[in-house]
Nucleic acid binder design. Structure first.
Lengths: 120, 120
DNA sequence: CGACATCTACGATACACATCGAACCTCTAT
DNA sequence: ATAGAGGTTCGATGTGTATCGTAGATGTCG
């Protein structure tokens, strides 16, 4: 029957991953949303992620996330189940993911022009 | 005499800044290095930052950092002194900057191909 | 076996942006 | 006032990459 056979897709050792790589991976809006989704649902097949982009694009982003060490993907039968490498990430970059995922949405205008008194 | 007169350049209210904007600002290698430098030296005039890019490019990056809420810049006489908005950032995104600045450099190869046992 | 579903790989396209050099601006000092 | 130092702005250029559609690979079910 061999249906619950799990194979993990190739992924980097987190010790070899720079913080800049992780930040770059998290910088894309779609990828950030993927990480948020995976964080809430725990794990999900690629197709179950509801995103405003095409399937091939999601696949590409998941590859980026995997290659940057953020996500691991298991082949479970016909589908690929992805999940955040939570514990490993916490060891490598303590507090990073919690702070990102815990960030509350901004209030009002995305970018205010001023905050002081010295405008021209 | 008017030489120690300080004027702050326009900057956004951190409450209106999205986490994605901050991550995008930190994603660039040069900007990340600027943030690291400012974190170590406390504050610095734009020209004192030793970076592998031209002056105008540094200026551009500092603008990006300022508009994303990461850095504040004061006009002190003839020079512009920049500094990280540490306390405000810690209130808005607790733990984010410490985790980024505290990250240790990667060991060896920047990106390993595999990390598990299930390669083909 | 053959049809279907899931996902990835491949080109191709378009847009964002990092970078530079030169011109310009604003203070300071002479 | 004139010159100079410190930074910014502008226009142009090149590269990286997010996106899409289609084709191909792998596994499941009838």
């Amino acid at each position: 029957m061999r249906m619950t056979e799990e194979t993990r897709l190739p992924q980097p050792d987190l010790a070899t991953v720079e913080i800049g790589t992780v930040l770059q991976a998290l910088a894309d809006p779609v990828r950030l949303q993927i990480v948020r989704l995976l964080d809430t649902v725990g794990e999900a097949p690629c197709g179950a992620l509801e995103l405003p982009v095409g399937r091939s694009t999601v696949s590409h982003h998941l590859r980026t996330l995997r290659e940057s060490g953020l996500v691991e993907t298991h082949l479970r039968g016909n589908t690929r189940v992805s999940r955040i490498r939570g514990e490993e990430l916490e060891r490598r970059f303590p507090g990073l993911l919690p702070s990102v995922l815990g960030a509350r949405p901004a209030a009002q205008g995305t970018a205010a022009a001023d905050g002081g008194e010295g405008e021209r």
